[in-house]
Every structure is written in C-alpha cells, then in structure tokens.
Amino acid sequence: MLFDRTVPRSLVHRAAVSEVFLTDLCVTGENTFQVGAQWPRAHSFYSPATLPRHDPMLFAESLRQATLVLAHQVFDVPMDWKFLSHEKSYQISEGALVLGDRPADILFAVTTREVKRRGGTVSSMITDFDCYRDGERVGSASVRWSCVSPAAYRRLRGGRDVPPPVTGVLPAAVTPQSVGRLSERDVVLSAGADGHSWQVRVDRDHPVLFDHPVDHVPGMVLMEAGRQAAKLVHGRTDLLPVGCRFSFERYVELDTPVVVTALPVRSEVPGALGVEAVFDQDGRRVARGHLDMLVCG
C-alpha cells in the first residue's frame, strides 16, 4: 500500500488537492479491497482546536472518499453520476487518534455486499471497513450508498438539481469556544432558544465543507452540526466523536432553515457521553444521528 501521493481529486469529488486524503487502492478479491489514506497532523478544519488528537471526522470524510474511489475505479460508475449516502456509521479507538511525529498512514480493509445493478451499472451497495494504523485494527465502519445517472438525478430532485443563489446573511453563530472551535467561520450552529435546538449555519463559502458548488447540504455538514450540538448539550469541549451512526432520509435543501435537536442519551462506549440528534426542515425529518463523545484530556 502506497502513501506517497494522493489519488486524483476528481475520483473523490474534490476541487482542492489539499482535501484529498486517499493515497492508494488495491483489489484483493472478488469483493475485497484495500484503500490507503493519510491523515495530516493538522488540518484547516478537521482538527480539534483544544485537543492534541486527529479528528475522528477525518475518518468519516475518508469513508466518503473511499466509496467514491471504489465506485469509479472498480465498479466503473461514470464520473458524472450522482451519489446518495443513506447510512454511515463508524467506531474508532482513542489510540488511533494520537498525534505522532508524522502524519498517520491508515489502511482500510474493505468488503462490499448487497451490490445491486441497474442496466449493467452498479446502483447501490453496502461498503464495510476495518481500519488499521501501524498494523493494529483501530476501528470499523459501514456505508450504505446508491448512485444514479444525471437524468435520473434531475427527475429525483424535481428541478432542484441546480444550486439556488445565495441570499441573506448567515444567522449569528454560537460562541466558537463553546463548540471547540477557534473561528466563527467553522461554527455550523446558530444560537438556540432552549439549549437543545439550533439552526444549522450553512456557509456555502466555507472552503472545506463546501469545497465546490452543490445543490444540497452535504452529509458532512450535518455530521459536524451533530458533533457541535453534542458539545453544547453536555457543556464541554473536550469530547471527540469516536462513534457515529447517521441516517440521511431526505435531501437537505440550501435555501430553507434546517434545525438540529440534540438530547443526551446513554452511550455504550466506556467513558463516552451519548447524544441523539435529529434534523428537521420544513416540518419534515431529514436526518438523524447518534454520537458517542469520548472525554479526552
């Protein structure tokens, strides 16, 4: 497995080379693969501001990129097809997140299952991951996703497949320090009225969360909103999302408010604090997630 260069940015649907974390892909069997990734010691967004650790959201973004590379390179999904993430989950150990004296070289052992095709082209599958760092298994994950042709996507979106114009101003952000951020630009929640619900701040000029123009709010924005809401619910910033289970039920539109409501729940991860987050837009549930937030010193 090579870690000396990134895969082409087009394969992971990124405009900036700096946002590509994958380095290699090897086919090891009929439905098994290995994917290499490198996590930087610091990143403009995926870095816990107050904790000397790799950000677990690097894991989540690497999963997104790995499914795209497999789809295009192995399953011959055309580059212009549109992808839909339905469910994403991961678990990772705190040891996997320790900063060393160089970037972390990560190996994903990948298995695909429930592969479905339409007209000879893959239309959906579940992709399972085992995550290794320095030969030690440190995490696991699963992604259920599907893809459609551009024409099918236009029909699916009902005319909303073109990004609407940016109008108005962003709602006021919660204090960056309250969600473990240094800059207001990286805050994705506005001030809430009851301590459990916040409007998601959709900053389409953010260079990482909106690396390129899209017609809906990306899933990584919702996951980040869930992470920040979890910190507010528990009133502490020394928390890392070492476990996540998210389901994305509808497209989240860019031009109407989306609200996240988060409540503390029991976590099955020792030393972690659990949070359930639900996302609503125009009176409809659009996504939900569970986060296990580990207390880290």
Results as ranks from 00 to 15, higher is better:
Tyr46Trp: 12
Val35Lys: 10
Pro48Glu: 09
Pro40Asn: 08
Leu25Met: 06
Gln38Ser: 14
Pro52Leu: 14
Thr32Leu: 05
Gly29Thr: 11
Thr50Trp: 13
Thr50Pro: 02
Arg41His: 00
Val35Ile: 14
Ser47Ile: 04
His43Cys: 04
Ala37Asp: 08
His43Glu: 09
Arg53Gln: 13
Gly29Lys: 07
Arg41Pro: 01
His43Trp: 03
Phe45Tyr: 13
Ala49Glu: 13
Phe33Lys: 03
Phe45Arg: 01
Ala49Asn: 07
Cys26Ser: 12
Cys26Asn: 06
Glu30Asn: 11
Glu30His: 10
Phe33Arg: 01
Tyr46Ile: 02
Thr32Ile: 08
Leu22Tyr: 00
Trp39Met: 11
Phe33Leu: 10
Val27Pro: 11
Phe21Asp: 04
Cys26Glu: 14
Pro48Arg: 10
Trp39Ser: 12
Gly36Ser: 01
Pro40Arg: 01
Arg41Gln: 10
Cys26Arg: 13
Glu30Asp: 12
Phe21Gln: 06
Val35Ser: 04
Val27Lys: 14
Glu30Gly: 13
Thr28Met: 00
Pro48Leu: 11
Gly36Cys: 01
Arg53Leu: 15
Ala42Ile: 08
Pro48Asp: 10
Thr50Cys: 13
Ala37Thr: 03
Gln34Cys: 09
Leu22Asp: 01
Pro48Ala: 05
Asn31Pro: 00
Thr28Ser: 09
Asn31Trp: 05
Thr23Ala: 00
Leu25Arg: 10
Ala49Arg: 11
Val27Arg: 14
Ser47Glu: 05
Ser47Tyr: 02
Ala49Val: 11
Arg41Met: 10
